[in-house]
């Protein structure tokens, strides 16, 4: 498969009132053509910052201190402002979390959807608006011709997110970055938006980077999943790898805190105790160690490298080191291993 995007050793720092926050501390990943990569993690883990770095849409106090972002082999971090403008909304576009605030309240939605076309293509206003109307129909806005001249406040939250998606896909981007596109929506609407994204991906063949803190949403859309914690990836692999053969204790914690069909009605959901580390002063070892019931001394001293679990599955935990003691994961995870075996996988 073609790697259309590759992020290498990305570091992002934020200059804040209290000091420099090392928000992203060496992230590596790639995106294949036509696939959907989900990045999962709790709030503040750095998912959003990672993807915003790709488009260089970071806050003014942020700096990408190290790393490369290769788009078809070209380092985006070396591009000037104009070259980046040409990519944004054209080759790489983005959907934001909150549809209630993502649309310009004083511009008609027709114009907003047509805007990327007018910026990037040499088209007439009329043609752009015509295309905008088609795309609005495509994303499921009823009666788009009549609604082109309406303003955002005249639409519901779900419809607004459809409009935001229309803006993102109107110029057939190669990469679509969806930053928690369903978080602000009702559960039923969430499902519709996920379906819409999947459908659109088939129709126009874009690759998607999907950010979420909700593992439940991931299964429905992703091909591959990366789990992020405190500015680093801790585990990545296929959906099956992550869901049924997780190796990192943080992934265990995430999965265990998610209700499944098998969850007993009276069973309590587990939560991960503690809070993420302060990235003003990142820990030397595994950032998850203080919250990790399976932490070893080395976890507190040394950053674990990625250990390969299977061909495409990697996890950064010392538990995979040959010298590590054998630990028993929580019961919920053992159940998942059982299923993985049934699926024909080679669970540990």
């Amino acid at each position: 498969m073609d790697k259309i995007l590759e992020v290498k050793d990305l570091h992002v720092d934020f200059d804040t009132y209290n000091g420099v926050v090392h928000a992203i501390r060496g992230v590596n990943f790639h995106l294949n053509a036509g696939e959907t990569l989900a990045i999962v993690g709790e709030s503040g883990s750095g998912k959003s910052i990672t993807v915003r770095s790709i488009l260089q849409l970071l806050a003014s106090n942020a700096t990408i201190s190290k790393g490369e972002i290769l788009y078809h082999g070209d380092d985006l971090l070396q591009k000037n402002a104009k070259e980046m403008d040409n990519l944004r909304g054209n080759k790489i576009s983005m959907i934001f979390q909150d549809p209630m605030t993502s649309l310009d309240p004083t511009m008609t939605i027709g114009k907003q959807v047509a805007e990327p076309l007018l910026i990037h293509n040499n088209v007439s206003k009329k043609d752009a608006l015509k295309r905008a109307e088609e795309v609005l129909r495509l994303v499921g806005i009823p009666n788009p011709a009549a609604r082109m001249n309406d303003y955002p406040h005249q639409f519901s939250g779900g419809q607004r997110q459809r409009i935001v998606i229309a803006i993102a896909i109107v110029d057939y981007p190669e990469i679509l970055i969806a930053d928690e596109p369903t978080t602000a929506l009702d559960v039923t609407v969430q499902a519709q938006i996920i379906d819409l994204l999947r459908e659109l991906q088939q129709k126009i063949g874009t690759s998607i980077i999907f950010i979420t803190h909700d593992l439940g949403v991931v299964a429905g859309i992703a091909d591959r999943v990366a789990v992020m914690y405190a500015g680093r990836f801790v585990e990545y692999g296929s959906v099956d790898d992550i869901f049924f053969n997780p190796q990192h204790p943080y992934t265990w914690g995430l999965l265990d805190s998610m209700p499944t069909l098998d969850t007993n009605e009276d069973a309590r959901l587990n939560s991960i105790p503690g809070t993420p580390p302060n990235l003003l002063d990142p820990p030397a070892g595994d950032a998850f160690a203080p919250r990790n019931a399976y932490a070893m001394q080395i976890d507190e001293e040394q950053q674990p490298p990625f250990f390969q679990v299977s061909k495409h599955h990697f996890a950064a935990t010392w538990l995979l080191h040959p010298d590590a003691p054998k630990v028993t994961p929580p019961a919920g995870i053992l159940n998942r291993y059982e299923k993985f075996k049934k699926l024909g996988g080679n669970a540990k």
Partner: peptide, 29 residues
């Protein structure tokens, strides 16, 4: 610092266009 300005940037508007097409009007009201 609003989301729609971020979206306007994500569309590929130059900084100048972001200001003239979106930011000015919304702050002038």
């Amino acid at each position: 610092s609003s989301d729609y300005i971020e979206l306007a940037k994500a569309k590929g508007n130059s900084s100048w266009k972001v200001v003239t097409k979106h930011a000015l009007r919304n702050s002038l009201i």
